[in-house]
Write a protein that binds this DNA or RNA. Structure first.
Lengths: 188, 188
DNA sequence: GCAGCTAACGCAAAAGGTTAGCTTTTGCTG
DNA sequence: CAGCAAAAGCTAACCTTTTGCGTTAGCTGC
């Protein structure tokens, strides 16, 4: 997330946008590992010292950009039933997060984040999506749902843990199993 | 984890040890953020280029050192019963990992780890400890245990997820609850 | 609108970190 | 003990990062 700006409108906002755009462009052109602050600054039409003063260093800048990529663009799809909604969402989440670019964004977001704000934001995104799904189920009158924290602990956390700490492959079946276990838990 | 050395004995080993020792000393003296490759190299009696050639950059070196810190020193304590063993281990694990130095080591380990080897090693440490606890329970004749993967998914993963992605506080009660839920799962 | 104020940016120089080519040392092997 | 190759030393160029100072641009109150 962008740092709180004392002057949200005007030049500050333009600079921030230009820098973020430059990161996107150069990431696509030269690749994530070849990014440097002077390179990004030149593309953004800004001096390097501006970037250093605003973001501190390259890692914090990339962390900000990564969080933008991890923000979900739409609400989860409605399949008419809690199990289906949650399963579909978990499958898509795992698919996106476990992909090479997904892993890179997660790492960047966690990496350049001294106070944990960006990481907290990532978690909040997932929590919001889950909350939407659970509220929908409530509106339908479905009973015995788990709460958001339970879903995070038993569905999101295992997937993220494996993405970060386990080299191996992850498939949709794993996501389905986690969701099934989690819902069964609430019914027993 | 140290890179595989073509010549495990002799100078290579001495250099590696000197550099690791220098990191430990300087970390204590000047603090984690003031560490630089030239500084570490000077303390280790080595030229910077040696460090760059062996480790690539500072982050990979710190990642290696962090994994050493995260290696458990002893087997988990034996309390005579699976529930007690697992609960005590989880409480201690959470306590260590959620502490400021613990978080710093986790971040360092994940950070300078292009291929995920170091992160995998961290996960393997936890898996080994859990395996010891479960084998003990088997030896006692306790039935209906979860397997290692289940404990990782439902106990380790939630704790690590919250440490990494949630700014908030974590207490021993959370660890106890996760263990209790996990064992109950196996018994239903 | 038009001063006055200050945060944010540009510029440039200095300091420090990183890389690369080449030489020397060191440990293994026959 | 002689030959070989891996690893470390050395040095110089390169790039990144920091820092101080002058300038611009957006707010605020009149």
């Amino acid at each position: 997330m962008a740092k709180a700006m004392a002057r949200p409108g005007g030049r500050s906002a333009r600079v921030q946008e230009a820098v973020h755009a430059a990161v996107h462009e150069l990431d696509a052109e030269v690749g994530r590992d070849a990014l440097t602050v002077p390179l990004i600054a030149a593309r953004a039409g800004v001096t390097p010292s501006t970037v250093y003063r605003r973001w501190g260093d390259l890692r914090e800048l990339l962390s900000d950009v990564a969080v933008e990529h991890l923000r979900p663009e739409t609400d989860p799809e409605d399949h008419g039933e809690l199990v289906a909604d949650l399963t579909a969402w978990a499958e898509q989440f795992l698919d996106e997060m476990a992909s090479p670019p997904g892993r890179a964004y997660i790492r960047d977001a966690l990496l350049g984040d001294p106070d944990g704000d960006n990481a907290g934001q990532c978690s909040a995104y997932a929590a919001e999506q889950i909350d939407v799904i659970l509220r929908r189920a409530t509106a339908r009158g479905e009973q015995q749902q788990p709460d958001v924290e339970t879903v995070i602990d038993h569905v999101v956390a295992p997937m993220m843990y494996r993405i970060l700490f386990r080299p191996g492959a992850l498939d949709a079946a794993y996501a389905r199993r986690l969701v099934a276990d989690c819902l069964e838990r609430g019914r027993r």
